[in-house]
């Protein structure tokens, strides 16, 4: 268990760094584009594409962080109607199930990515590499839900944002 929570904490640190870096890069690129367009009548065509991919990076790293902060949006009827004990019982099975669902998505995104790689035109290959975030993101989500299922809740499962 100690090892598992150590793994989780290291992963979370890394993901926080990646999330922060992606968001910061998104901001910097967006501002650079505005300056380039207005001051130099020039744009960086590839930068437009990259900024849009960065949204996916922020999304996936944010979503992995959200697992452990218990911040994923849910229809929380259970939180108002069920007793705290029932909710505690539900914590692990729900996360295990979410892990399974994410695993199927990870599988789907790996097959999607391989197809992209096979059919990419040469000038688009860098985008396919940037697009690795899709399989990586779902694998990370799977791992986090799995860890959450194994480690159990660390405090109130109904914590609100």
């Amino acid at each position: 268990m100690k090892l598992l929570s150590l793994i989780r904490d290291r992963l979370l640190q890394l993901e926080l760094l990646f999330a922060a870096a992606s968001l910061l890069l998104l901001l910097v690129l967006a501002v650079a584009q505005i300056i380039a367009r207005n001051a130099f009548d020039a744009g960086i065509t590839q930068a437009d594409t990259l900024t849009r991919y960065l949204v996916l990076y922020v999304t996936f790293f944010g979503a992995t962080l959200a697992v452990d902060r218990n911040r994923h949006i849910k229809i929380d009827v259970a939180c108002t109607l069920l007793s705290t004990r029932t909710q505690a019982h539900l914590y692990r099975p729900l996360r295990a199930l979410a892990a399974v669902i994410c695993m199927f998505f990870a599988d789907a995104s790996i097959r999607f990515w391989r197809d992209e790689w096979t059919y990419a035109q040469d000038y688009e290959r860098w985008q396919v590499i940037v697009g690795l975030i899709l399989p990586v993101g779902f694998v990370l989500l799977t791992i986090h839900f799995l860890l959450a299922a194994l480690l159990g809740p660390d405090d109130d499962a109904c914590r609100l944002p």
């Binding site: 367009r37 009548d41 744009g43 065509t45 437009d48 594409t49 035109q121 000038y123």
Partner: peptide, 27 residues
């Protein structure tokens, strides 16, 4: 060159044409 010109994202002919004309399009 001073306009915001659309490029059909990932179109090599459009890209080649704009590059040859010194235009940086918005994909």
């Amino acid at each position: 060159r001073s306009r915001r010109v659309w490029l059909w994202q990932g179109d090599p002919i459009g890209q080649a044409f704009f590059q040859a004309s010194g235009i940086s399009p918005v994909p």
